[in-house]
Amino acid sequence: MNTKEFKEGIRDGLPICLGYISVSMAFGLSAAKMGIPVWTAVLMSLTNLTSAGQFAGATLLATHGTYLELTISMLIINIRYFLMSLSVSQKVDKEFTTGRRLAASFGITDEVFAVSMQRRKELSFSYMTGLILTPVLGWTGGTLLGGVATSLLPEALSDAMGIALYGMFIAIIVPPAREHKNVMFAVLLAILASCAFTYLPVLNNVSGGWSVIIITVVVSAIAAFLFPVKEEEDD
């Protein structure tokens, strides 16, 4: 374990952890409202580490959905992690053995992915361990807090925290979009497509999980076709 890399991981993971605490408190709260025992909600957070998937899964379980429905929902909502893991697989260093790949894969969430892509060097196992550690604690601990002490945060504050994770995403996409016209193009096209999938008839019947996949694949392909990236620009 490389201590310096591990500490950098912890440092970069802390903002994710803070954002997760509020979101997972909301999850713990709604799971409790649905009649799901707190300890099972905490277990779900610890083993799943995914926001949208857990909200959908808890809702299905509370309404006695079938295991098939549960499996298909998880596939559709979480399939975007496939693309994220694929990107991460291209950025890990040579020391990333199979065992390390099996371990680090567990923690690839939207935010962990986003932050690891922003790092300007190859990803070491020490860095990834630090990066994943506090978000897991925040996510699991927040679920517990939300389940047992729902009135801990004033509602206005927990409501405002809902925007924090989106703020993080904005912090990741805006600076490179400002510097590189090709990235700006990809970002704007993705936003346009996402709005179309949200507001246009027919398209808005596509579930959120699938529309993100379709937009990611199609827009990235268009951008790669129009503006191939040379080796040097690839950070």
């Binding site: 975007r80 693309l83 904005i170 993705a190 937009i215 690839d234």
Partner: peptide
């Protein structure tokens, strides 16, 4: 490689 380079930006923009 170019396709993978754009993925973080498109997926995060679409989700946000």
């Amino acid at each position: 490689k170019s396709f993978l380079y754009y993925i973080p930006y498109t997926v995060l923009a679409a989700m946000t």
